[in-house]
Every structure is written in C-alpha cells, then in structure tokens.
Design a protein around this nucleic acid. Structure first.
Length: 701
DNA sequence: AAACTAAAGCTTTTT
DNA sequence: GCTTTAGTTT
C-alpha cells in the first residue's frame, strides 16, 4: 500500500496524527471521530513507510474485542496477516512478558491467572482463617484491587502503620493474600500489571531490552488507564518517547475501577513536548443527536474544552417519552422498535436499548418477548462465568498447575466424592502447619498413618485422577476434556442443561492447546458470544461504550438511575454519571429515544422518580417531548403524537379491502410514509400479504 | 455431607 | 423479586 493510499481517507487532523510518527503524541478523539482509524492507519504508516517492523509496535487496548478489531483492520491495511504482533490488552501483553520474566519474582513460568471469582474464593478462605467476617470479601477484594492498581504493595501499606487510618487487620489480609497467591503460583488481574511495572523498575536491563523491542507504543482509550497502567506506559516510552495515546476525557466512565482521567493531563506534563491533536469531526451521528450530547457534556466543569461537529443533516429530533410505569416504558420501546422495523429501513440488529442497571433489562426483555422481537442481553452472565464452565476450567488449571490450591479446592468435591467441608478444613490446617500446598499435603496423607483408611482411599482416588489427567495434558485438548467429563462423571452430575454448555465448550476448544486456552479463558470475556442473528441489543450504558447503532433507546432517564442514587453527593461522581449519559447519546447514529417512567418498581417498593436532572441540559431545539396519559376509565390510551406524521390513509387496521387477484381481505396493519404506504392484509384465500399501496390496487369496501 | 430453609443483601465492572 | 449466604435439619 502506498503512502498516498494510506492517507487519502483521512481528514487533516487524522492525517496529522498518522504522520506524527516520532515523539509523544496525544490524540483527543471525541466520540465517533475515527480514533480506531487513526491508530490502525498510523500502524500501517509506521510499518510500510517508516519501515518499522510490525512486531516492534506495542499497541495496548482495554478489551479483547478492541484488540481483535484493530488486528483485523491493520492486517487488512497491510494486506497480509502477521504472526507475533504485539497488539492486545494491557493484561494479555503483560502476561506475555511475565511468562518470560516472572521467575525473578519467585513464580514459575506456568503461573495461572486468577479471575475475580478465584480471588473471591481466596479472600474468603483467608478471612475465615483470620476469624473475620467472611461476608466482607467483596469490599476487601475491591480495596485490594484499588491498592494494586495504584502500585501500593503490602509492604507500602505496612510502612504507614502509624497513620491514623491504618487498618491492621486489612493489612494482614493483604500480606496473606499475596503470600497465598505466590504459594499457589497464581497472579490476579492487577498483579499482571503490577509485577510488570516492578520488573521494569527493579531491573533496568530488562526494561532496556523491552525498550529495544518496542521503539513505538500506542495506547487506546487512554482515559481509562489507571496509575499502574500509566506507569507501565511511561517506563516503556521513557527512552525513545515514541508514544501515541488516544483518548477522550468525556468518555471516562470507569473511575470507580481506578481509571484516572488525570493521566491525560499528566501525559502533557510528563512528555513536555507532546503534540496534541484534537479530532472533533464526528462521522457517526446526526446534528440533533450531537447537539443533545454536546448540551449535556458541556455542563461538566472538569473537562478539556472541545466541540464535536458533523456535516450530517439535522436528522429527526431526539424523542423524549414519559410513561407511567417501567412496564409502559418497556412496552413503548418494543412498539416503537416494531414500528420502525416494519417500515423496512432497519433490521433488528440496528437497535440498542441502553439502561443504567442490569435490573432494568428484565421488564424490557418481557416486552420484547411479548412483541415477538428477537433480542440479546449483552454482558449479563458471560459463558466463562457459569459454574459448570468455571469448574471444568478449574480442572484444567489444576491439571497444569497442581500447586493451585484455590482451584483445587473448587473441584475437590465437585462432583461430590466424600471430601466435604470438614475434611477439607482438616487437610488445609495440616497443609498450613507443614507449609505445603493442598495437593502436596494430600499426597503426604496417602502414605502416612493417622488417617482413616476410607479417607485415604478417597484422597488417593482424587490424586490419581489428577495425575492421570496430567499425563494426558499434552494431547488434544478436546480429548482431555472428554476424559475429564468421563472420569469425573461431571455431565451426569450437573444435569442436562448445564451439560449442553459443556458440550459447547468441548466444540469450542477444537485444535487449541491447553495453556493458551487457559489464558484466553481467564482473560477473555466474550462480549459478543452470539454475534450471529438479527436481534436487538440490550445492555448497560457502560457496556455500550465503543459501539454504535442506528437507533438507540436510553431507558430510565430519571434522577435515581441517571444519575444513580449513590452518585449524586459528590461532584466527581455526578460528572461521571453525566459522562455516562453522554456516552449513551453518542452511540446513536440516526435516531435517539430517551424514555422515563414516573413510577418505577425497585425490588418490592414502588418509587416516584423525578426526571433526570441532565435532561434540562439538552437544548430544546433538538428534542421533542411527549407523554402517554391515562384516558377515561382504566384503559391507557396514547395521545396521538406519532414518530412521524400519521399517514393519511383509508386503509387502517380492520378495514375490509378488495384485491384484483386475491379477492376480499382484512387490513391487519398499515405503516410507512405517505408516499410509500404499506399494508399487511389477511386474505382468507392466500394468507397474510404485505402490499405497497403504490403498486397494489386495493379497493376499500 | 448434603439438602433444606430462613434471612440479607442489592451500581456500573473492559481484565 | 431474586440471588447469594448462613444456619439448620436429615
């Protein structure tokens, strides 16, 4: 591909960003301004024009999906696929580095990665051992994560022993937690980054090696980086300073997870000669939608000033619909989707319904089902989080790494093999006393006295099972899974429904090797499990980031949902909620609907909620408000404010018509614009037909 | 050890 | 309202 080809589809700012190949570069890329395009074209430019080997460009993203998309597009630009590219998530790339280097920290190279659930289990076992409230595990886990993301290790915590808010018990848990991870030869998500940073800080030679390996660095969604990720980027870029970061402070919605928008400002300070380029042309949304978004986000005080613009037309106005209850709201959404769908311009996959909390999905799902609209709920419970899948992955983890006591614990009695909580507790105590791992301890028990024969028998069976499976681990992975199912009787134990998922798992691992699969399973949450099929997407506002849809609904525009109850006290939290709405609005390409219910059920009680305070921030010119009112009696009727002017046609539902060929029928439904009116007619002779009034010569009778 | 029952929770969550 | 957890029974 020539230099010309590479640049021809870019606007001046995008082009400038692509051409700025040396030195630090900050690209402030507004929603829908083509940031992925900049990264991919810049990659292609570096490799073909500047002759940088593609494997020397480190490109870090936050999601696997973003990484996959980038890989695909870059390979498309380069016209070939390349092995060994360093394009991936922070976590997967750090994992790749640590697989080579971790031995310096006393881990083995085949360490395993603990996902959220594994860490929960570990923390709970520690709390139990310390006689602390086990129910606190979630809070403890998030505190641990925050500390690690800020590069504060247990030893740093202990240094502050004298400070007034020093929490001795918590510090002990942290120390023990890290010890246990090491004992289990396991790293959690935050460790992947933290140890990589430590590696580079404590071993300058290693850092230099990787600086040689990656003279060019690019980072996507920079506003989402936390302290450790920023430090990592800074270390790698500190020598050559060829670092390009792309982000949008207005789309920072993960502060609660440690993301630090200030990194954008820090970047400008840390790399003093950083070039700053703003991408403000939006290629996604109509003017009205963009105006609505701009009105909202401009109310934030803590942001870098910018203004998105588009050369698209005004488009339809944003519609704001008020309903009485959440069920009415869901019904309205379903009906509107159906109506737009029947007009034929959109397929179901063009629609998204966005909401603040997953709980809202249920009533919307009901409405979709009732209307016969195909839908998929995204991000609720991912495949890999299901119990049965996690169990089998635990088997695999233990087979590869018998030191992994947490996963061993998980499977030791699933399916039940007579080693229950009491027995397990005994083994664990012994193991702790002898400073051994669980598996080792079990092997000791088999050949020692003082345990009942039946217990030894059970334990021997289990140890032999794992060792047998371990000897088979280098064969075909799907064969190994079959073997696990067979030898443990797992399928029969979990029942038919869950067994189906396991069969699916079996098919999905065809041709993969065990270690690669375990890493993928730990680091991969398939956001789009069933991408196929034409279906409306239901998801939280958070999940929607990075996506776009022709038609978007934002449900629950109420104070209490957007902004959420807990997030109205502090300014920073409120502004994050505002950004969340901004992200939602900017997902829409052509049509945007915002809905709210006056009364909404929360758990058991019904609450009356006021409209979201953010709605007042939408300029009046770009939206239209209407309300569904109750008519006389108990029947709810809709005041006739239609999406588009109601078609003036005599052929409305219920009318009898005559068709020259099919005879007499009854109109089921009529829809479409005035000039392109369509009707669905049920003819007793041939069934339901869709007809265009322009062509079919219908006669009203 | 497993199954049952009562009670207490309860945003968002790229990895 | 429904899922997760703790405590109790069988």
């Amino acid at each position: 591909m020539s230099r010309h080809d590479m640049l021809k589809d870019l606007n001046p700012q995008q082009r400038e960003a692509v051409l700025h190949s040396e030195g630090p570069l900050l690209v402030l890329a507004g929603a829908g301004s083509g940031k992925t395009r900049v990264i991919t074209h810049r990659f292609a430019y570096l490799s073909t024009v500047k002759k940088v080997p593609p494997t020397s460009i480190l490109t870090m993203t936050f999601t696997n999906k973003a990484a996959d998309e980038m890989k695909e597009r870059i390979e498309g630009l380069l016209g070939r696929s390349i092995k060994g590219l360093w394009i991936g998530t922070f976590h997967s790339l750090c994992c790749r580095i640590l697989r080579r280097e971790i031995e310096r920290f006393g881990f083995k190279r085949d360490f395993c990665i603990y996902d959220e659930h594994d860490t929960y289990d570990l923390i709970r076992s520690i709390l139990k051992a310390f006689n602390m409230h086990e129910a606190l595990y979630k809070g403890i886990s998030s505190r641990l994560s925050t500390l690690k993301a800020s590069l504060i290790g247990p030893e740093d915590l202990l240094k502050n022993e004298d400070s007034y808010d020093f929490d001795e018990k918590f510090a002990r848990v942290y120390v023990r937690y890290q010890e246990e991870l090491r004992r289990n030869n396991a790293l959690d998500f935050d460790d992947l980054i933290m140890y990589t940073v430590r590696l580079f800080e404590e071993y300058p030679k290693v850092l230099r090696k990787y600086q040689d390996e990656f003279p060019y660095i690019m980072i996507d969604e920079f506003q989402d980086t936390n302290i450790s990720q920023y430090r990592l980027s800074k270390l790698l870029a500190s020598r050559d300073k060829n670092i390009c970061v792309v982000g949008d402070d207005d789309q920072s919605i993960y502060r609660f997870r440690g993301a630090n928008v200030k990194n954008i400002l820090a970047f400008k300070n840390d790399f003093s000669k950083a070039k700053v380029i703003r991408l403000e042309q939006n290629y996604r949304s109509t003017k009205h939608i963009l105006d609505a978004a701009g009105g909202v986000i401009s109310c934030n005080s803590m942001r870098m000033p910018k203004r998105l613009w588009t050369d698209r037309t005004d488009g339809e106005k944003v519609l704001y619909c008020i309903t009485n209850t959440e069920r009415d709201e869901a019904g309205y959404i379903a009906r509107t989707i159906k109506e737009l769908y029947l007009k034929g311009r959109y397929s179901y996959k063009d629609f998204a319904v966005l909401y603040r909390v997953n709980q809202q999905a249920r009533v919307i799902e009901d409405a979709m089902r009732d209307s016969g609209i195909p839908y998929k709920v995204i991000g609720s419970l991912s495949f890999y989080q299901r119990k049965e899948i996690k169990d089998i992955i635990s088997y695999l983890k233990v087979i590869v790494n018998p030191d992994d006591s947490v996963n061993l614990r998980r499977i030791i009695n699933s399916p039940p093999r007579g080693i229950g909580a009491a027995t397990l507790g005994r083994i664990e105590n012994e193991a702790r006393k002898k400073d051994k791992g669980l598996f080792e301890m079990m092997k000791i028990i088999i050949s020692s006295n003082g345990y009942s024969a039946s217990l030894k028998e059970k334990i021997r069976d289990f140890v032999e099972l794992i060792e047998d499976l371990n000897s088979q681990k280098d064969g075909e992975l799907s064969r190994l899974l079959e073997l696990i199912y067979e030898r443990t009787g797992y399928l029969e134990w979990v029942g038919e429904e869950r067994a189906e998922n396991l069969t699916e798992l079996l098919h999905s691992v065809e041709g993969k090797d065990i270690k690669g699969f375990i890493d993928t399973a730990s680091l991969y949450t398939p956001i789009d499990e069933s991408q196929d099929g034409d279906a409306v997407s239901l998801m939280t506002l958070h999940c929607a980031k990075g996506l776009e849809f022709p038609v978007v609904f934002i449900a629950g525009a109420e104070d209490g949902l957007v902004p959420y109850f807990h997030a109205i006290k502090r300014q920073e939290e409120l502004e994050e909620e505002r950004r969340l709405l901004y992200v939602g609005i900017t997902r829409a390409k052509d049509r945007l609907f915002i809905t709210r219910a006056k009364r909404r059920k929360f758990y058991t009680s019904v609450k009356e909620l006021k409209p979201s305070r953010f709605l007042d921030e939408i300029p009046t010119g770009c939206y239209q408000c209407y309300e569904k009112r109750h008519g006389r009696g108990s029947i709810a009727i809709e005041t006739k404010v239609h999406l588009e002017p109601v078609a003036s046609t005599p052929f409305v539902a219920g009318v009898r018509v005559r068709h020259p060929k099919w005879g007499i029928g009854v109109v089921r439904e009529s829809y479409g614009d005035d000039d392109d009116m369509k009707v669905m007619v049920n003819f007793p002779s041939v069934g339901v037909k869709r007809l265009s009034l322009r062509f079919a010569h219908l006669e009203r009778i």
